[in-house]
Design a protein around this nucleic acid. Structure first.
Lengths: 132, 132
DNA sequence: ACCTAGATGCGACCGGCTTGCACTTGGCCC
DNA sequence: GGGCCAAGTGCAAGCCGGTCGCATCTAGGT
């Protein structure tokens, strides 16, 4: 990952190392949780640094973010492709494989010539436990 | 609609009349466009009034809002039930009947005991024209 | 060791709401 | 019609997630 950066003329700094490490350690980081994780060892890293690096990683295609309901976006490595089910009542998040959307994808492609990108925005509803 | 309000002990004010009229005149108002519409005849209506009335209408169940991508939420009458397809490239919005999601709904219900609410958050992807 | 473009920290700013508070007013009772 | 008072309102400040401008610093090629 760092090699990928270097090969594009981007620099490798302590802050970036730390952000990359945090991203590898856990999926579904929010920008805030990344800042917190990075600050445990590098207390002076600014939020804007994290946002800017994440933006850069997304441009390269190494990272993606998803919006889970109303709160902040979550970031994860681009190779973890999955959809998110968010419960509107308890806020809980369930991951589902992208394959679960293949039927809908086909239908929207046929009906509307619309190519679904199920990762970016979550699908909302009510989880099993909140239905009772 | 105003009768519905009155029957719940809520008051009918010029601002509320105007907001209700605007909601009936067009689906997919943003809070901002509602403020603008109302101000054409009642220039002193504050945004907070609109937000508070919309909140009240949602509690009653007469209005719903949806999030279409990153921008502001859109409001529409609760009886207009449909999903939204939002193009991540051009931002265009397509309405689709809720029935289009019935397959996915069934699948999620079986797989995850998750009850889909397809209206609230949009489904993102690429529209036909942006794919080329 | 040096140079410089890329990266950083800081603080201001922005959009979309939300909230606190003092003032106004709808609408029931006389 | 007039009085009453809680529901509703306008205004301004605040919040949250995120972006930007700018002076400073530093990675890393030479």
């Amino acid at each position: 990952m760092l090699a990928e950066l270097r090969s594009r003329g981007m620099r490798i700094t302590p802050a970036r190392r730390a952000i990359a490490t945090a991203l590898l350690a856990r999926s579904h980081h929010t920008a805030d949780s990344l800042v917190a994780a990075v600050r445990r060892r590098h207390p002076d890293v600014a939020p804007s640094t994290v946002y800017r690096f994440l933006e850069a990683l997304e441009e390269i295609g190494l990272v993606r973010h998803s919006h889970l309901g109303h709160g902040p976006a979550v970031y994860h490595l681009a190779d973890e492709r999955h959809g998110h089910l968010v419960c509107e009542s308890c806020g809980g998040v369930t991951e589902v494989p992208e394959a679960a959307f293949s039927g809908l994808r086909r239908k929207l492609r046929d009906l509307e010539r619309f190519e679904l990108a199920p990762g970016h925005f979550a699908v909302t509803g009510l989880c099993g436990t909140c239905q009772s």
